[in-house]
Nucleic acid binder design. Structure first.
Lengths: 331, 331
DNA sequence: TTGAAAGCGCTAACAA
DNA sequence: TTGTTAGCGCTTTCAA
């Protein structure tokens, strides 16, 4: 049986409210009393019951994080960032894995919403309509997705694509294949657009392939179509796809970067272990998690939707050049 | 403002207690009233406040999961398994990442303990003493670790090592190097023992190397020492280490499996993407998470420590043969 | 089968 | 500066 505030009060010879104050607004209580309370707390190993506190303050001190797939290293990193920052603020984190299922996502969000002060939705698969509905009656911060009037963090996909293209063009590539991810994915749309714009600016040619699943298997499936376009370089939706593509090219005896260059996006840990090590656009993953927490906490302190609309962070990617890109082959 | 039980009661024309009963013990309430309540619940989108319920029942419907590092694919998989099973029971999961820090672990556990019905501790780094103290006043299930009188799931490390050895011996290997993980790691001890026993049974020789960090870098560091032993095969603490080792061997121009065979443990997703694809002992990761939830729920229903002691599951590994193992080279 | 009342652990007015 | 009182949303005796 854990100690309650009354146990502490009795031991310290004060009233429960004094204990409460000593803990949450120490400056409003006499130093001597404060010390007695502190001693009693120490002796009893007292820790306030957050649920009870939440009942009355309306703040639970808990937040929720919803991701499509924890086994995906990208989301695992974001989750780690969220954890780290939440811990600093003494906030506990519910994590829910939706298994890439939009319906499950909505259900989990509804269930969690009652128990937390706010929710971080990372790359949510739900429809814009569902998302807006959720944001209506819950404090929400979006990561890797935008929605009307909902604060969030996004990556500068256009900028990342521009860096990748500049690199490839400098190497002499003039026709570049793009292996897109899920059509419904917000990132796919923006990356496609960014790539297309950057290539246009350089007077280079884009060859679209896909969409394919954002997985290793997706990459294997995409490889043959990508080379069939005659492109000398391939940019993929993410690193997992790039690595699958690498495997298939290797199996077919196509040399990377000799015959074709490959660029991924994300920079997951696996990428530098690939052979050849993967050139990729590094996205700050843990940082996204950390900022999301900051943003959410800010929203909680000022839930005015007017302010929230302006609260949107953009994170920039960084091109990491490794061994999978090289000069375009001479025809 | 979410609907409360009183709103539902008013709308249904009954008392709050009747609503409560209709929801948690439906058979004790008239079918007609039950229907009215159900309608009101539906109309208001009512969802009971778990915190309030927990205050009185002593059960929150939440559990906690504590892992050393979410970015480690092994733990991410366990977490995913926990999620999936918890969802089935309508239980929400707090996740805490300790960053491989034993002190942080104890702190996080203490903080979480008050908010949950029970805790799943996966590969905890805390001392036996701390662990026992925690288990004293909290419902705990251990994964990948044992402690006196605490229920848990472990892997059959000995059995896994026996399979790996049988495979290598059949390929003609007579001297096998073992790259151990952290000395304080429970698994390291059991894997070392299992390997040693299995080799003894086959009349083969063990060459110990390490310990090394359980990471890609650890594997790179271990590679040279492992080959210097003159062993024709290497077994590593986990797949990450094996993949790092593979990279270093490749850099040195040592052929796998031509010159030396390599076996990992875990079967993380990355392993089949390695080149050569990694032979490994697959550990059922998500299943460990699922069983841990079942175990914890069972403990909650019957917190008798006498029963708990008997409650220990063992999961078996499965040898997955890929391209990193082959016949021992002829001298 | 239903309702009234008490109370879970805590905080926030309001008095003192 | 401190204590008293009321009540957050819910469940659970106890009566009716």
């Amino acid at each position: 049986m854990p100690a309650t505030i009354r146990d502490v009060a009795r031991l310290a010879g004060v009233s429960p409210s004094t204990v409460s104050r000593a803990l949450s607004m120490p400056e409003m209580v006499n130093a001597a009393t404060r010390a007695r309370v502190a001693a009693a707390v120490e002796q009893l190993g007292y820790q306030p019951n957050r649920a009870a506190r939440g009942l009355i303050t309306g703040r639970t001190g808990n937040i929720g994080l919803v991701v499509p797939d924890l086994a995906n290293p990208f989301f695992a990193s974001v989750a780690k960032g969220v954890q780290a920052r939440a811990r600093r603020y003494d906030v506990a984190v519910f994590v829910a894995d939706t298994d890439e299922d939009a319906a499950a996502e909505v259900g989990l969000v509804r269930a969690l919403a009652k128990q937390v002060d706010g929710l971080i939705l990372c790359s949510p698969r739900a429809s814009d309509a569902d998302l807006s509905a959720i944001a209506q009656d819950t404090n929400v911060v979006l990561v890797n997705r935008t929605a009307e009037g909902v604060p969030g963090i996004i990556y500068d996909n256009e900028g990342g694509m521009r860096q990748a293209v500049a690199h490839l063009v400098a190497l002499g590539h003039r026709k570049i294949a793009w292996v897109g991810g899920p059509v419904t994915s917000w990132s796919t749309q923006h990356r496609t657009l960014g790539l297309s714009n950057a290539l246009y600016d350089h007077g280079a040619e884009l060859a679209r392939v896909g969409s394919f699943a954002p997985t290793y298997e997706g990459g294997m499936a995409a490889a043959d179509q990508a080379v069939a376009t005659g492109a000398t370089a391939v940019v993929t939706y993410n690193d997992l796809v790039a690595i699958g593509l690498l495997a298939r090219l290797h199996a077919r005896g196509i040399s990377v970067p000799g015959d074709v260059s490959v660029v991924g996006i994300d920079d997951i840990a696996m990428s530098r272990m690939a052979r050849p090590a993967l050139t990729t656009v590094r996205l700050p993953k843990q940082e996204a998690g950390r900022i999301a927490v900051e943003l959410l906490l800010a929203v909680l302190d000022d839930p005015d939707p007017g302010t929230a609309i302006g609260t949107r962070g953009t994170l920039h990617g960084e091109l990491i050049v490794r061994d999978s890109t090289g000069p375009a082959p001479q025809p």
